[in-house]
Amino acid sequence: MTDQTIIWLVLGAISGSFINGLTGTGTALFALGFYLVALPPLQAVAIVALMSVLAGLQGLWVVRAAIRSNLPRLARFLLPALIGVPLGVGLLASIDAGTLRLAIATLLIVHGVYFGFRTTLPRFRARTPIIDGVIGFIGGLFGGAASVSGAIPSLWLSLRPWPKAKVRAVLQPFNVVVLAMTVGLLFFQGAYNERAIHALLITIPIGFVSAQAGIFVFRRIGDTTFRRLLIGLSLLMGIGIALQELF
């Protein structure tokens, strides 16, 4: 493994894991570009998925009390997602994943621009169990079909005036479970070969420290700042997905 490859892996681990530690999502957006320079696409995606799970597990510990007190809400998102993931994987052969990713990117950009530059944030308080389930299903479906499981749930949760721990108590375990399923599917496809293992030996310890740095910042910001971060991340995710597909 060359020094240049190691540098790209280190940069991807730092950026992706820090964002995941801070917001509970976004690893692929900030890390995949670096990994694709250093590794073949299948191994790059496999490493991003596993790094997302490892960073996410650290974040789960931070909001463990909020998760325990919000299990019914989490279940509304997560159970439909478990149905959506294999369906999304099954759709890969019959849909244009690139077109789907561009459609998602457009939605995220519109949402990020509209709400990101408003002086007041939306305060959608109504209980919406059916919509929550639909959002969870779409997140799982898009995760299996286009590797963007956190995009739509992040958009939806950024509209709710919930405390940051409550938002993360849904978003973090949602992404961990969906991406863990992705890791399992990639494992059976042979993605974790010798080259990927060598890359993980470099990225895992760096990703652990970077995720802890992100968690450190998360603990020190307010609820409104966290919501604005999610809206800003939606915009960046949309731009990043669009650039990946167009160029």
Rank of each mutant, 00 (worst) to 15 (best):
L22V: 02
L22A: 03
G24C: 02
T25V: 12
G26W: 02
G26C: 09
A28M: 07
L29M: 08
L29F: 00
F30I: 07
F30D: 01
A31C: 09
G33Q: 13
G33Y: 13
F34P: 11
Y35H: 09
Y35P: 01
L36K: 13
L36I: 10
V37C: 06
A38W: 05
L39H: 06
L39P: 08
L39E: 08
P40T: 03
P41D: 08
L42S: 13
L42W: 01
Q43N: 13
Q43F: 05
V45G: 07
V45T: 15
A46N: 11
I47C: 06
I47L: 15
V48Y: 02
V48M: 03
A49H: 07
A49I: 02
V53R: 08
L54W: 00
G56D: 04
G56I: 01
G56H: 05
L57K: 04
L57C: 11
Q58Y: 00
G59M: 05
G59D: 06
V62S: 00
V62H: 00
V63G: 04
R64N: 05
R64D: 02
A66Q: 06
I67K: 08
I67C: 13
N70V: 03
N70C: 08
L71G: 03
L71Q: 07
P72R: 08
R73L: 10
A75D: 06
A75H: 09
L79Y: 09
L79G: 04
L79V: 15
A81I: 08
L82Q: 11
I83D: 09
G84H: 08
V85G: 02
L87V: 15
L87D: 13
L87M: 15
L87F: 15
G88W: 13
L91A: 12
L91V: 15
L92K: 15
S94F: 08
I95F: 09
D96N: 10
D96P: 02
A97L: 09
A97V: 02
G98H: 14
G98I: 05
G98R: 15
G98Q: 11
L100A: 08
L100G: 01
L102G: 07
I104G: 04
I104R: 01
A105Q: 02
A105G: 00
A105Y: 04
A105S: 02
A105I: 00
A105R: 02
L107G: 11
L107C: 10
L108K: 05
V110H: 07
V110P: 03
H111Y: 05
Y114W: 14
F115V: 06
G116E: 05
G116M: 05
F117A: 04
R118Y: 13
R118D: 10
T120V: 09
T120F: 13
P122N: 06
P122G: 03
F124M: 12
R125P: 02
R125T: 14
A126F: 14
R127I: 12
R127N: 13
R127H: 10
R127A: 14
P129S: 05
I130N: 06
I130F: 15
I130L: 15
D132S: 13
D132G: 05
D132Y: 12
V134M: 14
V134Y: 14
V134A: 15
I135Y: 11
I135M: 04
G136Q: 09
